[in-house]
Design a protein around this nucleic acid. Structure first.
Length: 392
DNA sequence: GATCCACGGGAATACACGGATG
DNA sequence: CATCCGTGTATTCCCGTGGATC
């Protein structure tokens, strides 16, 4: 347990028993500094990154594996630690020449969900490697590209960019990322991270491919146990319940944490001091299978998230058809969008798999094309809580 | 004045079905 | 019987506009 959570826990001691000490610790989209249960893959990645310790760049790479395999967790943790340790050793060596540029590569992490356009990705990289502030609007993409290439050339430093979440419905695919980054020069190499098996991709693959398979049951139990010990009151979650969740999740850490989070939240709302088995069941029921990643949902533009937040509170009646749902959402006091836009959002979200259109069995009153309903493909309890925590 | 991006709005297209047509 | 057509909806697609910034 790290210091932060020890302090959080201590602050609670003495007050009324609180079940959930730290939602962040059991969140399906939390970034951890120390990924567990991924030892072999970490070794493989460190082998690949070996040139970095001599101040060189490794070749481009593609890291891939199924949802919930810990790809983002591993890559963000690795990047953060390498950036920290390498710059630390530099400053020790070069204490007298602090401002001197060194050979150690810089580590830049770009989440394609936050930055999907060419402009946004270039901007993210330039912002990370340069001291000056980089404009978000007002300059063209080619101007930005020029500034970026100049900066890479002039700085003398090399950069290793991790581009996470490539190849999702609303993010650029591997070929696009390769195309964008290869043109920036030899002092930048990249590691793309995605779900698609490279063998099914009809593109020129980067020289290194590293697979992250799904968690094994045993490792998933360990991770759940350790995160639960940080985020939940003592003895709030029984070992058998942890195993149940792990079995059910079938190696998918995202779904496992979503279920745990949902269960804990439910138990907390009911004022319990520990999680009951019916909470676990409800937590699992909250997670549709397949389930779209909450990271995707939480990275959506604000207005789309607002539409979803309103959507998950609608009653039966309002969920009957896209039309009804649209009206109900557009009518909500908090939503300041026209019905046309709300409807378009709903169709777009269905297109990308965050919600799903369900066709009504044809029949009824044979007038025109039958309407469909939309259903969430994400855990609504968890989404509600994450959304409300962030906007409170 | 230029730029990126989210919105708004509406045209174009797809679909379902009954009834007409060849 | 297979197709086509007309009507009424549902869904997709596309592009102009405007806010916020530089």
């Amino acid at each position: 347990m790290d210091l932060k959570s020890r302090i959080r826990r201590r602050r609670r001691t003495g007050t009324t028993a609180t079940l959930v000490l730290d939602y962040e610790a059991i969140s399906p989209i939390a970034h951890v500094s120390e990924p567990t249960g991924r030892g072999p893959v970490l070794e493989r990645l460190l082998d690949y990154l070996d040139p970095v310790f001599d101040g060189d760049l490794p070749p481009n790479a593609y890291v891939w594996g199924p949802i919930g395999a810990g790809k983002s967790a591993v890559v963000t943790a690795l990047w953060a630690n390498l950036a920290g340790q390498l710059s630390e050793s530099q400053s020790v060596i070069h204490t007298t020449t602090r401002s001197q540029t060194t050979n150690a590569p810089q580590f830049v992490y770009v989440d394609s969900r936050e930055a999907s356009s060419t402009f946004a990705q270039y901007r993210a990289i330039l912002d990370a490697i340069s001291d000056e502030s980089v404009p978000e609007k007002g300059i063209g993409t080619d101007t930005l590209e020029t500034r970026l290439t100049n900066s890479l050339r002039a700085g003398g430093a090399s950069v290793l960019v991790a581009v996470d979440h490539v190849g999702e419905p609303e993010t650029p695919d591997l070929a696009t990322v390769a195309d964008r980054l290869d043109s920036l020069g030899a002092s930048l190499t990249w590691v793309a991270v995605g779900r698609t098996n490279p063998e099914t991709l009809a593109v020129d693959l980067p020289p290194e491919r590293i697979e992250l398979p799904a968690y094994r049951r045993h490792d998933l139990v360990d991770i759940l146990t350790s995160r639960a010990s940080e985020g939940l009151a003592e003895r709030a979650l029984q070992h058998e319940q942890t195993r149940d969740i792990a079995d059910w999740a079938e190696g998918n850490a995202h779904d496992a944490f979503a279920a745990l989070f949902g269960a804990a939240d439910r138990a907390a709302r009911k004022g319990r001091s520990r999680i009951h088995s019916e909470d676990i069941t409800a937590g699992m029921m909250d997670v549709p299978r397949p389930c779209s990643s909450l990271g995707r949902v939480m990275a959506l533009p604000q207005n789309r998230q607002l539409v979803l937040r309103t959507f998950v509170d609608l009653d039966e009646h309002a969920r009957e058809s896209v039309e009804r749902t649209t009206e109900a959402i557009a009518d909500a006091a908090s939503v300041d969008l026209t019905p046309g836009t709300v409807k378009r959002f709903l169709y777009e979200l269905a297109e990308t798999g965050i919600i799903e259109r369900v066709q009504r069995e044809t029949g009824d009153d044979s007038h025109g094309r039958p309407p469909s309903r939309v259903e969430p493909r994400f855990p609504i309890t968890v989404f509600r809580r994450l959304y409300d925590i962030r906007t409170e």
